[in-house]
Write a protein that binds this DNA or RNA. Sequence first.
DNA 1: ATAGGGCTTCCAGTCACTGGAAGGTCAAGG
DNA 2: CCTTGACCTTCCAGTGACTGGAAGCCCTAT
Lengths: 130, 130
Amino acid sequence: MNIGDVAQATGLPAKTIRYYEEIGLVTPHRAANGYRDFSDQDLHNLVFLGRARSLGFTIEECRALLALYADKGRASADVKRIAREHLVQIDAKIAELRAMRATLSDLVDACAGDDRPDCPILRGLAGEGG
Amino acid sequence: MNIGDVAQATGLPAKTIRYYEEIGLVTPHRAANGYRDFSDQDLHNLVFLGRARSLGFTIEECRALLALYADKGRASADVKRIAREHLVQIDAKIAELRAMRATLSDLVDACAGDDRPDCPILRGLAGEGG
DNA sequence: ATAGGGCTTCCAGTCACTGGAAGGTCAAGG
DNA sequence: CCTTGACCTTCCAGTGACTGGAAGCCCTAT
């Protein structure tokens, strides 16, 4: 398969697939004309990568997961540990965003939003000084 | 004030303050020895920037907010619009993370996490293929 | 022969910093 | 006066994960 077909099949941009090759996540063979030639295995790996990335795993986590995916003698505990650590990161991010949201929402609610200059949002950002 | 004092007072790293000068968010004067010399106004702006950044506003949003902060004839509606747009972004991000969290959490719950290779997490990432 | 689409590589840019090297400045201590 | 150490300066490079674009080769159809 050429890169365009793989991009179509996986939903990943061709640019991204080339990037994944560059950093060693996939290693497609080359045809005589220099074109990348992706095997079914490469395709599976790219689908896997796409899903892992869409769940927010970092590239390095993806690399580790892919190695476990390829290792038929793996312990599922190793996979679960990575996933659980990532869950903790997600929860932290959600908590951070909710805190931002709460503060900002209060400020927005307090602001008249008219043509006058008085603005609780700006006062809040300045630290109640003006 | 020297940059170290300002860093102390604002909680921003000196590197970040220099970066903010480079991109034109603050314009401290220079002392005879070449050191940056921050006014109270600069300090206020940096506090403002620190808070706006901590609420997740982008640098360009911060630039716009800072301009409104400086403009005593502003309309609070302009501030409110920026803040509301940012709230929408935050909500989108939270929704995205919650979706990730839900999917990943299900996979983690389904995984035994023992020394055997069978792993619902990997199966899920591969698309139920193995 | 030419037009088009797809493929290749390489370089640069994104965002908001962050780290580090090389060197100037200043106050205190000997 | 000299040194030490903390501070300051600039400049360059790297982060993560791509993304855009230029220049040029390959293949098929007309």
